[in-house]
Amino acid sequence: MAINTANFTDEQLVVEIRENNKELYSEIMRRYQTKLSHYLKKFFRSQDELDDVLQEVFIKAYKNLYGFDVDKKFSSWIYRIAHNEAINHIKKNKRKNISLDETEWEIVDEKLDLHEEFDSKQMGERIQRAMGELKEKYREPLILYFFEQKSYEEISDILRLPRNTVGILIMRGKAKLKDILKYE
C-alpha cells in the first residue's frame, strides 16, 4: 500500500525508511536537492563537481540514517553532512572557492548596509572576492546565515559550535567583510 508522505515531517520519513520503506528516500532527496545544491554552490563553481558531491551527500546520509537522532532536526543533520563533504572535497583538491548567484550579492549589500554605487556585476565580483578572502571560521556561518536563512541554533547544530560562538562569528564576519569591501 502506497504511503502518502506529503504530510510527513522529515523525521517521520526517516523512521519509515529505516523500517524497510527505503523507496521513501526519494522523497527526502526531492525535498533537499535544491536546498543542498544551492548551499554547495558556495563551495563549487563546477556543476559536475557539485553534482558529484551532492550525490555523495545523499549516499552518506542514507548509509548513516540509523545514526540520526529523530528527536533532532533532520535538516541540520543533512546540512552537516553536506558541509563536511564539501570541506573534505575542497581539502582533497586544494581549492578555495566561493561562488555567488547573480542576486545573492544584493543580500550581502542589504545585510551589511553597504549601499555601494557600483555596477551590479562588479559588485557581485567584489563581494565574491571578499567572501573568498574571509577566514573559513567566519565565511561558513555567514553563508548559512545570509544565503540559507538558517537560525543561530541551526547553524550551531550544522557547524557543531556553541550558539553564542555562532553569534560572535557572524558579527565579526560581517565587520570583517565590510572592512574588506571598504578597502578593496
Binding site: 532527496m29 536537492q33 549516499i59 545514526g67
Partner: peptide, 21 residues
C-alpha cells in the same frame, strides 16, 4: 540533473550497492 542524481542514488539503494549501516 536533479532527476539524474535521484535516479542514480535510488538505483544504488535498490540494487543493494548502498545499504543502511
Amino acid at each position: 540533473t536533479q532527476n539524474k542524481i535521484e535516479n542514480e542514488v535510488m538505483n544504488k539503494i535498490s540494487s543493494g550497492k548502498v545499504q543502511l549501516r
